[in-house]
Design a protein around this nucleic acid. Structure first.
Length: 117
DNA sequence: GTTATGACTTCAC
DNA sequence: CGTGAAGCCATAA
């Protein structure tokens, strides 16, 4: 075997395929519920690619009808970052308008609001 | 080619 | 609880 070959090379979706899969999952999150980045990745057939989900959401076209605000991190909080330029604050506001209650530490009860398929 | 940087997650202290 | 490391992978420089 002259060529080194990846065992377990499952053709995981990449590029546009992955973006499409991720968006399809996020669109299914019901109003008033949330899903974590890792959860969305797994449901999109992209295990361990939580980071990719975050990247896709950040670059989403604003005109796309995708409830990006319903995707949160595994700690049960809105991921805050300077690079978000305020969209993190907007995310919290949108979630609160859908009934998600935050505590004084910018966190909510993940067990209570997590969307289970 | 390399290194650095994240809307991340998990596990070990 | 907090911190750090490792795993992860697309992008930018």
């Amino acid at each position: 075997m002259p060529v080194k070959r990846r065992l377990l090379h499952v053709p995981a979706p990449t590029g546009d395929e992955a973006v499409t899969a991720i968006c399809a999952v996020v669109r299914r999150i019901p109003k008033g519920w949330v899903a974590t980045y890792g959860q969305v990745a797994a449901m999109a057939g992209l295990p361990r690619r939580a980071r990719l989900v975050g990247r896709v959401l950040q670059r989403l076209d604003p005109s796309a009808a995708i409830p990006w605000h319903r995707v949160v991190n595994a700690k049960g909080e809105v991921s805050c970052s300077l690079s978000r330029n305020g969209s993190d604050a907007l995310q919290r506001r949108l979630l609160e308008s859908e009934g998600v209650e935050f505590d004084d530490k910018n966190r909510f009860d993940l067990e209570r609001f997590r969307w289970l398929d």
